[in-house]
Design a protein around this nucleic acid. Structure first.
Lengths: 158, 158
DNA sequence: CTGATATCATTTGCATACGAATGAATTTGC
DNA sequence: GCAAATTCATTCGTATGCAAATGATATCAG
């Protein structure tokens, strides 16, 4: 308890007593959640090095609006996997920068419609090539075959 | 431009003109960063359903301290992949709950040593079995073989 | 038709996450 | 041995991310 670190002998003793280190040792660095968090961090860092003035969630919102056109804030959130509170903040910031504009749904007065401005459309068209490079750099440690396998398995987990 | 959504005919036209849809269509939902973010979200959600009173980063800090014993706040941050500002917040909250205690390094007065309290040790010993269940549930969509492959490739990306 | 439900958006509070700036202490280079 | 560079911790600002509560509107059930 009071010791700052276990000695090599302590570790050996534990292994001998346990007869199976995997049963008794918990290695944080081997846990899928921890590695997932680190892989995500690395990707965000690569993203920032290519696209400094937009975050991945902001980019996702623009890319999805470019893909599907005007939609409600709520629906957009569903499509880019953000809850209502988060998507509101993202849209507020994009709106403040003139990349999206919002309007009220004529029929259903609860809904807030969101759409790209011409500036937003220009921005996303300019950024998509950079996004391809980001994807490429993120996957650079893998071969083409590994990439295909990885994306298939990752999609099953997401 | 003014149209909220492309018609089926528009899409067909684009495909015909491009002779290769992958070159001209950007599908957010196929990008590694987007799927990585969703997989991470799913894991955090599973974590919260098993361990409601601790976040994954807080758990990581406790687990690492349990593994290596007392260390500096900075070193701990390196080991659990958190920058200095983030780790400070995590440690502050664990300290407020009596799970860790801090002290000054006698020799190097810049360093803040962090260690588990007896309560923190009890907590992490109690939680590690739950963490194993969390890992299992996160990986449940994959077979054993797929899991091994996935973890190997994920580690290469992280 | 109307009360109960459900949906959409907003707000608040808390917890990562990181860049940048700052101050204190240590180490390095010459 | 001392100035410069580095390291450690803190603080500030900004941006997700989510739970919970609230208000407005829409839909459903009887």
């Amino acid at each position: 308890m009071g010791r700052p670190q276990m000695s090599a002998e302590d570790n050996l003793l534990r292994l001998v007593e346990a007869e199976d280190s995997d049963e008794n040792n918990y290695h944080l660095q081997d846990q899928v959640g921890f590695i997932l968090r680190k892989a995500h961090q690395r990707h965000v860092s690569i993203f920032a090095s290519h696209i400094g003035d937009l975050t991945p969630p902001q980019f996702a919102a623009l890319a999805k609006l470019y893909d599907i056109g005007e939609t409600s804030q709520n629906q957009l959130g569903t499509l880019i996997a953000m809850d209502a509170a988060t998507v509101k903040g993202v849209i507020d910031r994009l709106k403040a920068r003139g990349l999206v504009e919002v309007s009220k749904h004529e029929v259903d007065k609860r809904r807030l419609l969101v759409n790209l401005t011409p500036e937003g459309r220009e921005a996303i068209e300019r950024l998509i090539p950079l996004a391809r490079a980001i994807t490429e750099e993120t996957l650079a440690p893998l071969t083409a075959k590994e990439t295909a396998t990885f994306l298939r398995l990752l999609a099953k987990l997401a």
